[in-house]
Nucleic acid binder design. Structure first.
Lengths: 213, 213
DNA sequence: CTGAGGTTTTCTGTATACACCGTGAAGTGT
DNA sequence: ACACTTCACGGTGTATACAGAAAACCTCAG
C-alpha cells in the first residue's frame, strides 16, 4: 500500500464519516504529522480530494473540507437520475438476466428484515452488477464520483426502517426490470426509486430544516 | 502561473491535439527535462491527467496516454445524451430567455457561413450559458469532464461544412427551445442534435474504419 | 538456438530542504 | 485613537536526494 493511498483513504473516510467537519482547514504539515507520512503523499491525497469534490483549495488559506448540505441533494439528484436511469436501461439490454434475478431474490429477503448496513451492501452489489453489465468506463467513472457524495448525503438523511423496506422493494423492481431485458421497464423502476428517495429526503428537510447546528 | 499548471496545460494540449499519440509512455524524468520543471509538478500534472481520463497509470511501466477510438464514441454518447438533455431541460426552466434568443440568432448567422473554428467557439459559449443557467456544480463538473474527451473525438471525426451547417441549425433549435422556457422542447432538440451527431460519426466510421494506421 | 537466471539500469515512491508569497500582528507616526 | 507600514511567521510551491522495486537486457548453460 502506497502512503499516498493510505493518506487519501484515511482522509476520505474521515470526511465521509463526518469526523472532519465541512469547513475544516487541512494543512499539509499538520496532516503529515498526524498521519505519520511526509508532505509529498499528503499533497497527492489533497489533490485527489479536490478532484473528488470532497475539498476545495482556497488560495492562501489552504485546503478546506467542502460543504455539503441537504440543499445539495436536489442538485445531486439532477445528475443522478438521468445517469442511473441510463445505466439501468443499458444493463437491461446487455446484462445477464440470471444475475439480476438473483439480486432481486436477495432484495426480497432484505425487504422482510430491514437493516441499514446489509441493505447498502446489497445495493452496492447491484450497482456493481449494473456497472459491469453496461461496460462503459465513462459512465462507471461518473457514477463512482456521484456515489462518494451520496454517502455524505446518506449521513444527513438517516433512513428509517420503513424507508429501508420500501427501498429494498424498489431495488427489487429495478432488478426485475433489468432481468426481464426490458430497458424501459428498468428505466421506469430506477426513475421511480430515485424520485421516491429524493421525496423522502425532501420531506426530512421540511420536517427538520437544521439537522446539526 | 504555477509550474504544475503549466505542465498540465502543456501535456493536455499535446494529448488533445494528437501530438502525444495514445500509447505513448510518459516518464516523469523525461517530461520534467522536456518541460523544464522538476519531477514534483510533473507528478501533479500526471495525477490530473489520470483523473481526467487522458492517461492511465500502468503499474511498473509508468503513465501512458490513454487510448481513444471511434469505438469510444458510442460509450461517450451514452453518457453525454442523458446529461446534456437534462442540462438543456433545466436551463429552459431557469435560464434567461434573452440570452438564448441572442445565441439562436448567432447560430442563424453561423449556419449561413459554416466554419469549424468559430462554430465550436459559439457552441462552447452556448454550453457555458447552459452551465451558468442551470447552476449545478455537479452537472457542470461532469459535463466539463466529458467535453475533454469529446475534443479528442472531434479530431477523429473531421467535420464537413455541410455537417457544420446542420449542426448550427440544430444548436439554434436547442437555443430556441431553452429561450421558450419549455423543458421538453429543449430536451427534444438536444436529444435530436446529439443523436444526429452520433449518427454522422457512426457513418464516418462505417465509411473509413481505420482513420490512421 | 533457446531458455533461465542474474545483473544492471531505470523507473516510481517518499522524504526533506529551500524559496517565495500571503497573512497577521505589532509598532510607530499622524 | 486610528491608520499605515513593516517585520515575522506559517503556509504552499518547487527542487533534489535517497531507497526500493520492477523490467529489460545480457550472459551462460543445456
Amino acid at each position: 500500500m502506497r502512503a499516498s493511498d493510505a493518506a487519501y483513504t484515511a482522509l476520505q473516510d474521515e470526511i465521509l464519516e463526518g469526523r472532519l467537519a465541512p469547513g475544516t482547514v487541512l494543512g499539509e504539515v499538520g496532516q503529515s504529522e498526524r498521519l505519520g507520512v511526509s508532505r509529498t503523499p499528503i499533497r497527492e491525497a489533497f489533490s485527489r480530494l479536490v478532484a473528488a469534490g470532497l475539498a476545495i483549495q482556497q488560495p492562501g488559506r489552504g485546503t478546506v473540507v467542502s460543504d455539503i448540505s441537504l440543499e445539495d441533494v436536489d442538485r445531486l439528484f439532477e445528475v443522478r437520475i438521468p445517469l442511473e436511469t441510463q445505466a439501468a436501461g443499458l444493463a437491461a439490454q446487455r446484462g445477464t438476466p440470471e444475475v439480476f434475478a438473483g439480486l432481486a431474490e436477495e432484495f426480497r429477503h432484505a425487504q422482510e428484515a430491514p437493516e441499514a448496513e446489509s441493505h447498502y451492501k446489497l445495493a452496492a452489489r447491484m450497482d456493481e452488477a449494473i456497472d459491469t453489465s453496461v461496460g462503459n468506463r465513462y459512465l462507471s467513472t461518473m457514477l463512482a464520483n456521484l456515489r462518494v457524495h451520496l454517502i455524505r448525503v446518506r449521513r444527513l438523511a438517516k433512513d428509517q426502517p420503513q424507508r429501508l423496506a420500501e427501498s429494498a422493494a424498489e431495488h427489487r423492481d429495478i432488478c426485475l426490470g433489468i432481468a426481464s431485458g426490458d430497458p424501459q421497464m428498468a428505466e421506469a423502476a430506477t426513475s421511480l426509486h430515485l424520485r421516491r428517495s429524493l421525496a423522502y429526503i425532501s420531506e426530512l428537510r421540511r420536517t427538520e430544516p437544521v439537522p446539526s447546528p
